[in-house]
Structures are given as C-alpha cells and as structure tokens.
Amino acid sequence: MSPRLKKLRKVLNPPVIKGFKPYGPEVGSLNTEPILLHYEEYEALRLCDYDMYNHHEASAIMGVSRPTFTRIYASVRQKVAMAFAEGRQMSIEGGKVYFDSDWYSCGSCKCFFNNPQKEVEISNCPLCGSDKVSSNNMEDGTDEQNASKNCNDICFCPSCGYEEGHKLGKPCSQMVCPKCNAKMRLKK
C-alpha cells in the first residue's frame, strides 16, 4: 500500500538565500555532505522563531494540522542542530510546498487579481489599467465579515444601560462602558 499523500504546505516567500556554509580552519576535514532543509521546514522555523507565532497559529498559516506542524518544526530543529554540531552545510530545497501570492483589488472595475511575480510591484490594474488598486488578503477579509455577520450578541452595561454589538474574540466581561466606566456584560 502506498503511503498517504502529503498535503501541500503553504510558504509565503521563498527564502532569500539557497543555504548556509560553515567557515573556519577545520571545515575541510569535516563531513562536507550538505544537510537538506525543505522549504516547509524553513517556513516553520521562520513562523515560529522569527515571527513568533505559536504552533497553532503557524499551522493555520501553512494550511496543515497542528500536529503536522509540530512534526515539521521538530525536524527542522534537529537538522539545524545537526548542522551546527557537525559543522555541515545547509541547503534549502525541495519539499511539498506551494508559494502563496498576494491578492489585490481594483477600485474602478471591482475585479480581484493576484501578483505571481513578487519582484514586480503592482501599481496598475491588469484589467482596466486604473491606478486605484489596493492590496487585500481576501481570505482574512471574508472571514472577518462572516464572523461579524454570524454574531448577534449584544454587550450591555448593567449600571447605565449602554449597549454595543459584541465583537467575536473579545469577552464582554473585559469591556469597559465608554459612558460610566463600569464593567460590561453579555445581554441575554
């Protein structure tokens, strides 16, 4: 039986370099075979230790499950440590990945488009040539809109009666009434 197929992992940008080389007088006498770092491993290290996301957030960004992300992360730690300890080269290549491109929208023809060449900056709409383009991440935008649509709860202030639409992810008990500075509550 063939093993289960790996899901494609989302990598934001390819790394700026192809790898690392050790230097020093002992380099020639050591094992010179490079350690292969996959793109998804590089991305996991970048998200976790450079952008300081936790495993849960980082797994969502890469489009894999949290346990899979932790496995990728564990493997990159092992490889980087091995390269340091044994003084070996690291080469970043391969892996089951795709590179995500940014999405833009045009204000005059209302179309959406992406930018497959990251080196080229977008200044005009590719369809109508208008310069009213704005960068947007479609996924984030729609998620937020859907979330606020689905939530009909109301936060209210028990002392003065002030009411406000509830925002998801922000507990009512931590909100402070803008009028009388009392703690607010969820209206039932």
């Binding site: 995500d100 209302k110 179309c111 497959p116 369809l127």
Partner: peptide, 26 residues
Amino acid sequence: DSLKIQMIVVKEPNKKVSDIIEMLNY
C-alpha cells in the same frame, strides 16, 4: 502560481467578452 500566470477574478455577472477586451486595451 508556479507557472507565473496572473489570475484576474471578475465578480460582475453579465460582462461580455468584448467588454473585457475593451478594458484590456486601456
């Protein structure tokens, strides 16, 4: 993305092919 082809999503129904071509000739 890997072929470096740009996707343009037009969310307006009732656009004719000739309209799109006209817009491309800005």
